[in-house]
Design a protein around this nucleic acid. Sequence first.
DNA 1: CTACCGATTGACT
DNA 2: GTCAATCGGTAGA
Length: 201
Amino acid sequence: MKPLPRSFYARDTVQVARDLLGKRLVRRSRTGLTSALIVETEAYLERTDPACHTFRGKTPRNAAMFAPPGHLYVYMIHARWCLNVVTAAEGIGDAVLIRAAEPRDGLPLMRDRRQREDDRELTRGPARLAEALDIDGKLNGYDLTLGRRLWLCDAPDDWADESLIATSPRIGISVNQQAPLRFFVVANRYVSGPQKLNRRP
DNA sequence: CTACCGATTGACT
DNA sequence: GTCAATCGGTAGA
């Protein structure tokens, strides 16, 4: 359960987005420990990507995206929290959105936080995942390499096989809609989004 | 201060 | 498949 080192995050953002599939996301809060295996991510690129929150520069909201790689960027959309990990290098403004994961530890606690019994309703979608893991704006800017409240670590290599990883356009954005910057585990029941996006290319 | 909007979700046809 | 609730960030008066 050792946290991934900062060097994992300090790489090309698209590569990190792909490599995050299969990693274990662990949350330790006062109420207990929960964890889930990442099955869906999206890359957001400051330099070339109008859909990226930092595309038009630094603001109070997106300041955490300019922190060193391995820090957390939590933002609110439609009255719900979503989580990203900062990538590339400090001051760049790139991040990877964690869109979905497969529950592993602490399912009863996740059901309680989500007020849902169906396992697919726990962590399928970025805001559902955040709520299941008790992640909100208070964790914005948190360092994921500390291994205390929230961190990422290697997991049994279920999805190392490239044939199980596919790419698609990102979900829910209104600009740069064609860019293939979404990554997901094929045929995993916890992947969000419309079915037609979730097939192999 | 007000007005508009979105990297969503959940309820509904 | 459709659609509206939700609320902090942001821009502009």
